[in-house]
């Protein structure tokens, strides 16, 4: 069975290809950047296409059957398993969907889609962790900037500045980062003497 993977995230596409290639019956093809999804489907004639849902050119695949001019011999359609709604919801939530040639049995599509969902989820989690790390970093920078400004304004040492922000945060029952942001915003509005 021929499987085409269409994902602009080459790292993720590579990981999914390795996962699927472990299955000897599968012939896995990666879509290259230069080819549009519809041209690749015409050229390779895959049985199943696993697609990153954010790929804008997947809309073209939806219409091949209806558009007579497309000249598609083996048109593919969005895979839908109406009896397994949670699989469908999981797939779209993870950011992957599957198109297949009409005669591909549902039982052949499902395991592939499940593998893709698991992998996409893992990538999404890693990405969320990265974003969280980046956020922490930028929060620390904000607090540092507020501290430096406070030290300049009040002519005090770093420990005193930090203590002042911590005290404000405790008194107002807020996070230090929020107090620091307010302080910076306020100082930017007030013209320096």
């Amino acid at each position: 069975m021929k499987v085409l993977l269409a994902d602009e995230n080459s790292h993720r596409a590579g990981a999914l290809a390795r996962l699927l290639e472990a299955e000897a019956t599968l012939d896995v093809i990666l879509l290259d950047d230069a080819t549009s999804l519809i041209d690749a489907v015409r050229h390779h004639m895959p049985d199943i296409v696993l697609v990153d849902i954010s790929r804008a050119d997947r809309d073209a695949l939806d219409s091949v059957r209806a558009l007579s001019a497309s000249g598609q011999e083996r048109p593919v359609a969005l895979f839908v398993d109406e009896d397994d709604e949670s699989l469908m919801e999981d797939a779209f939530a993870a950011g992957v969907c599957s198109y297949n040639v009409l005669d591909t049995p549902v039982k052949d599509v499902k395991p592939l889609l499940r593998s893709a969902i698991a992998l996409y989820r893992r990538f999404r989690e890693t990405n969320a962790e990265l974003l969280a790390a980046r956020k922490t970093l930028s929060e620390r920078e904000t607090i540092d900037r507020a501290k430096i400004l406070f030290m300049k304004q009040e002519r005090c040492k770093e420990e005193d500045a930090y203590r002042w922000f911590r005290k404000q945060a405790m008194q107002q029952a807020r996070k230090i980062i929020d107090v620091a942001r307010d302080y910076l915003a306020h100082q930017n509005r007030t013209p320096s003497p």
Partner: peptide, 16 residues
């Protein structure tokens, strides 16, 4: 904000 109309339709159908 989604990249294409298919994503709008699928979002409505599959609870996104």
């Amino acid at each position: 904000i989604v990249p294409s109309w298919a994503n709008i339709a699928d979002g409505l159908v599959w609870n996104g």
